[in-house]
Simulated scan of single mutants.
Amino acid sequence: MQRSTLKAWFLVHKWTSLVCTLFLLLLCLTGLPLVFGEEIAHLSEPEVAAVAPDATPRDLDAQVRSALAEYPGDVPLFVGWDPDAPTVYVNTGARPDTPPPQMHTALLHAVSGDVLPAAQFNEGVMFFLYRLHTDLFLGLPGMLFMGVMALLFAVAIISGLVLYGPFMRRQPFGTLRTGRSRRLAWLDLHNVLGIVTLGWALVVGITGAINTIAKPLEQAWQTEQLGEFAARYAGQPRPTQLASLQAAVDTARAAAPGMRPAFVSFPGTGYSGDHHYGVFMQGNTPLTERLYRPVLIDAQTSVLTAQPQLPVYMSVLLLSQPLHFGDYGHLPLKILWALLDLLTIAVLISGLYLWVKRGSTEARITELERAAQTGASA
């Protein structure tokens, strides 16, 4: 590799790493408990006894009425099912377009309809960590900024791999030279851990960047596809009297056999226009349960309106969100994600140490050239 090329890659790796390292440390530290967010949430949830397979679920309209009784003056926004427990949650808010941080959540037994103790998802330590991890409490600008940091991280990984190539040419993998200098030992540790976590870090970095543009992607989908169906109702006010939610879900089940409802959006929430229930169906496998299929049901008649197909970019988004937190293989994969997260923290800290103990750029380039020629890393 020519000196000019080597220097260019070195500068790319140096500056992309420096710019994003502190933010990546924040993401890794806050992301560690979020990997186990589901398990942590279950610790605060009430024990719900299993029900008989043939037990008849309570009517969904009655469930919504019970939830609204808990929060007088609210309107229903979303209804969803817990796949691991016989419970139904109902999100409510002061108005149909209530943002998530201002929503209320009621948890009800799916069969008896008993109102169960429920921690609000928009409060507590985990919510604080989630907001800090995703948008720094800055909303969409914060999310986009973190997305840029994730992309810089991906560039730093790729450039680091290019620079590590000469060292790997002649040195056994995992070489740690501890007898020459502390800085050299830290460099070897940085290189080895960087290679070990390279694939995972790229996956998490790229999926993280994709997740930061979730809101613009959802808005684009709503404008492109849902807008087509909303146009049929142009000039009509949003209905104030809604048809049976239970009938709408039954219609969606019949329209998508072999699938189960994951959640329902009410008119005005942004997920199904102003005149439809959006019944989002999911499959029964670890992959298909992430790829929702929306079924639009007329909110005044409970009649099927359409089953729009999700565009490719929405499918990519839905698949990347659980992959980012290792939510495909349950607890074993989450433990692996946590271990790789800890190793990545070590990579970032060792990189900061090497920058503090840095020499001149020209000296480092000379060392890299020597590594390319002899296989001895600097």
Rank of each mutant, 00 (worst) to 15 (best):
R3E: 11
S4C: 11
F10V: 03
L11G: 05
L11Q: 05
S17E: 01
S17W: 13
V19H: 03
F23D: 02
G31I: 08
V35E: 04
E39W: 14
A41P: 02
A55C: 09
P57T: 03
P57F: 01
P57Q: 06
R58G: 11
L60M: 11
V64M: 04
L68Q: 09
E70F: 01
Y71K: 10
V75N: 08
D84K: 10
P86I: 09
P86W: 04
T92V: 07
R95N: 13
D97G: 08
Q102S: 13
M103Q: 15
H104E: 11
L107V: 05
A110I: 03
L116T: 05
E123T: 12
V125H: 09
L138Q: 13
M143C: 10
L144H: 10
M149W: 10
A156S: 15
L161A: 13
P166I: 06
M168R: 06
R170I: 12
R170N: 06
P172G: 06
F173G: 05
G179H: 14
G179T: 13
W186K: 00
V192A: 07
I195F: 15
V196D: 05
L198H: 02
L198D: 01
V204I: 15
N211D: 14
P216S: 10
E218Q: 14
E218L: 11
E224C: 11
Q225V: 15
A230R: 10
Q236I: 05
R238T: 11
T240S: 15
L242I: 01
A243T: 11
A243F: 02
A248R: 06
P257A: 00
M259F: 13
A262P: 01
A262R: 03
P267A: 06
T269V: 00
Y271I: 01
Y277I: 02
V279C: 07
M281R: 00
L291N: 00
L291P: 03
Y292E: 13
V303T: 15
T305S: 12
P308C: 02
V312E: 07
V312R: 06
L319F: 11
L323A: 05
D327L: 09
Y328H: 07
P332K: 04
W337L: 04
V347A: 01
K357F: 10
S360H: 03
E367I: 10
R370L: 14
A372V: 07
A376W: 11
